[in-house]
Simulated scan of single mutants.
Amino acid sequence: MNRNRTNWLITSLLILGSIVILLPLYLTINIAFKSPQEMDRPLLAPPRDWRFENFTDAIEMTNFFQAFSNSFIVAFFVVILTLMTNSLVAYAIARNMHKRFYKLLFYYFVSAMFVPFPIIMLPIVRQTAIWNMDNLLGLIFLYVVYGLAFNVFIYVGYIKSIPKELEEAAIVDGASTWGVFWKVIFPLLAPMNATVGILTCLWAWNDFMLPLVILTDQDQATLPLVQYIFQSEFSTNYNLAFASYLLALIPMIIVYIFAQKWIISGVTKGSIK
């Protein structure tokens, strides 16, 4: 009896959670395909005439392809540099945790996760302006640095579970420290690399605050920033607004649908090991 009640409770919570997640997505799709004249109808009612012109109009008004290109460049290089650098830092820390300096360094990185971005926002804006980093290059650099704390935290736990005997065998065969990492350790980090890469991609693609305060050239604006800039033009036409939101959302939905198994696998293996 208790087990049946627990199952019903869990099922009810899952259904409720699914509705909370799927309802906003349905509303976004629904409004994006409606015409302005249909907005007087009930909000949940499907469109009578599917208006695909909303998407072409939104693309023209937001300069979508330029913003898409900027977001793609940022997300791509952030993922590559994050995997190459953050894993290397975590490896150095994980294999030297018995030393006081590296242990303090690890806790220093972990403590950075508890620092809210608004606290350091103004100094960062000032510093990037002085160093001429208020562009896509500076944005990529900041994403790699800000992701270091969380990524080191999950990398270190996984690296510590890898037997040191594998590295010792590689050294006996003549491999250098760099060779040991890139040829032995890095391939074994595939589950963690997939998890970190996907989460980093989602973060860099969807982030709004950092591009808002860093970028000064409108031609370098990312998709979330472009939508904010043109928000005044959408204020009287929710259909174009939601069409632009859907256009920006679709790439990440596709990425997550195909990559969710790697996210779950990486998190599960990291927690077990």
Rank of each mutant, 00 (worst) to 15 (best):
M84T: 05
R51W: 12
Y146N: 13
R95H: 07
Y143N: 10
L240I: 10
L137H: 12
W178R: 13
V74D: 03
N4F: 11
V145A: 15
F106I: 02
E167W: 07
D219C: 01
I130F: 14
F68P: 02
Y238G: 15
V267S: 09
F52D: 03
P24W: 08
V172I: 15
M192S: 09
W182K: 01
S111F: 14
L81C: 14
P191Q: 05
L188E: 07
F150E: 05
I254A: 08
A112H: 00
L148W: 04
L137Q: 11
A67C: 04
P163L: 01
L22N: 06
S235Y: 10
S244V: 09
F141L: 15
F153E: 03
I214A: 05
S271M: 13
S71W: 10
P187A: 09
V144W: 05
F77P: 08
F242H: 06
M133C: 13
I171L: 11
L148H: 04
T236Q: 15
L83E: 03
T236V: 09
Q127I: 14
A221S: 14
S71T: 07
K269P: 00
W50D: 04
P251T: 13
A194N: 07
V180E: 06
G147L: 04
A149E: 08
P211W: 10
M39L: 15
A32E: 03
F230W: 14
K103N: 14
V184Y: 02
K183Y: 11
A175C: 14
S35M: 09
L202I: 15
A45H: 12
A190M: 11
F258L: 15
L43D: 12
P163F: 04
G157M: 01
R3K: 15
F153W: 02
N70R: 13
L16D: 00
Y228E: 00
N96I: 05
G266Y: 03
N151I: 01
